[in-house]
Amino acid sequence: MGEVSITASCIIRQHRIYRNDELLWEASQDLNLQDFLRAAYDRFSGQYPKFHKMDHLCKLGWLAAEVLLKEPLDYPPAEVGLILANKSASLDTDLRYYDTVKEFPSPALFVYTLPNIVMGEISIRHGFKGENAFFTSDHFDTELVMSYVQQLFDENAIGAALCGWVEVMNEQYEVILHLVEKENKL
């Protein structure tokens, strides 16, 4: 057993993106969420057209991972886990999809009507194949998430994990994504 600790973080809130508490970029507060996400994609990534098909939840989580993992992780794909949580699950997209059902149900929206899809998008991008779980609760349950992560480390199921909070509902959003590793790895 070894203690786990946060070795890097990315925060996206109020149209600002931070990495390890350093403000990397700030967009105009006048932008709506869709335009902010596009501008952030242009600033930090590009060259990944599938981004534009994602829902807001996936774009937020994917962007945070993009910023966090600027340098590729030194772990085999099966040893990187994802443990995320939020308050609204995929309700933001569920409602958009429901609107389309009245006329032509949208397959492109339907595939995002689960909150854990964001972990799939991050995994596809970075090739992760480790354990993953998505929790939904009113607030980030630090004790639950950290005990779950610790258990995965203790069982040697993972060598590193991305874990945190990816929330969006209408135009309100917040992402806090941490890279967690064993202390003796450092």
């Binding site: 057209p49 098909k53 032509f104 149900p105 949208s106 397959p107 492109a108 595939v111």
Partner: peptide, 17 residues
């Protein structure tokens, strides 16, 4: 163009719509 299976469903919707 690199479309995938979900895009195929969207094309079916396009024809219908």
């Amino acid at each position: 163009l690199g479309l995938d299976s979900i895009d195929a469903l969207e094309l079916i919707v396009l024809l219908q719509q």
